[in-house]
């Protein structure tokens, strides 16, 4: 076991950066500062805080998906299912059980994540196009469940009747207005980014990358590739479910559309557009995708065509994504 992981590590590990503080660390610190200051500078350039929350939520979902997609090589077209399960989990908890949004988020994340953990092993039985079709179909199963199970989910009209309550910590009450909620999203985003970063730089993450790069070879080396694919599937499911829960909190509403494969398509294009081989690619993709959608839908009824064009053009001209495109430019 240790041997093949060691070889996988040498295949992907980069040489240590020179100097005490590398450019990468500086970049991440700068990114963190920019994000922390969003509520202060965004209104100045004509944005609003909820829009930033939406960007971060979609970025979080796409980053979770990207662990499976970009780093393990599993093309899931059904991750909206776990997003939607997280959303319904949070909505139902807040509506019937509790006023603590942290508890609701925990439950929503667990519901979506456990579903992914249970269904991943079925999906990873096949790879490639087949894997994509299976994940879509599993996702649509939840979609139809939500549409049909009227008494619980509210059917096609969606689930309403819950709202964000202030977070009560011992000796501290955090209000959940737009700004307060943005920081909650940011904390979740940061924690998950740290988690994904840690995973990717661990032997586990190197095994994932090995599976992406050469599936057969890893089988020959004795790695249980399907098991690792399922692990990657599960981790990404938990992250996506948390994003879904946050999305329900942002809207105080959730509908079967949060389970539908069209949303999975949105997450995929966010990852591809930003650069699915780059850690921060999905964040870049989410910024572009959400801002364009927000702007275009305010000026024309044909915004779906514009979104469709984003799909077509980014597939044709930016197969490596925006970040991949610039990285290659700067490398050459």
């Amino acid at each position: 076991m240790t041997m093949e992981i060691a070889s996988a590590r040498t295949a992907v590990a980069k040489p240590p950066a020179p100097g005490l503080i590398s450019r990468r660390v500086l970049g991440n610190v700068a990114l963190g500062l920019v994000l922390l200051a969003v509520p202060f500078w965004l209104p100045l350039v004509g944005g609003y805080t909820d829009l930033a929350s939406r960007v971060l939520i979609y970025a979080l979902a796409a980053m979770g998906l990207n662990l499976l997609l970009g780093f393990t090589g599993g093309l899931s077209f059904g991750h909206a299912a776990y997003f939607g399960l997280g959303a319904y989990g949070v909505g139902l908890m807040l509506k019937y059980e509790t006023h603590s949004i942290l508890l609701a988020l925990l439950v929503g994340t667990l519901v979506g994540g456990i579903a992914a953990t249970l269904l991943g092993p079925i999906a990873v039985r096949r790879r490639g196009i087949y894997f994509a079709m299976i994940t879509i179909a599993i996702g649509q199963m939840f979609y139809f469940l939500a549409v049909r199970w009227n008494s619980l989910t509210g059917g096609e009209d969606g689930l309403t009747g819950f709202s964000r309550h202030p977070i009560k910590l011992p000796g501290l009450t955090v209000p959940m207005g737009s700004v307060g909620f943005f920081y909650l999203v940011l904390v979740c985003f940061g924690a998950c980014a740290l988690l994904l970063w840690t995973v990717l730089n661990s032997p586990l993450g190197h095994t994932f990358v090995g599976i992406r790069e050469n599936y057969k070879r890893l089988i020959f080396l004795g790695v249980r590739t399907k098991r690792y694919l399922a692990i990657s599937f599960a981790i990404s499911g938990f992250v996506v479910a948390l994003a879904g829960g946050l999305n329900a909190l942002l809207d105080n509403f959730t509908s079967p559309n949060t389970l539908n494969y069209t949303l999975s398509g949105d997450f995929l294009i966010i990852a591809v557009l930003g650069g699915m081989r780059n850690f921060w690619g999905p964040l870049a993709g989410a910024v572009i995708f959400i801002l364009v959608r927000d702007y275009v839908s305010s000026i024309t009824d044909n915004w779906m065509t514009v979104i469709g064009l984003i799909f077509v053009l980014s597939v044709l001209f930016f197969p490596l994504g925006i970040l991949g495109f610039f990285n290659r430019k700067s490398a050459s």
Binding site: I307, F311, V312, V315
Partner: peptide, 8 residues
């Protein structure tokens, strides 16, 4: 993704 965008 291409055909998905086309569908839209």
């Amino acid at each position: 993704l291409l055909t998905f965008g086309l569908a839209l």
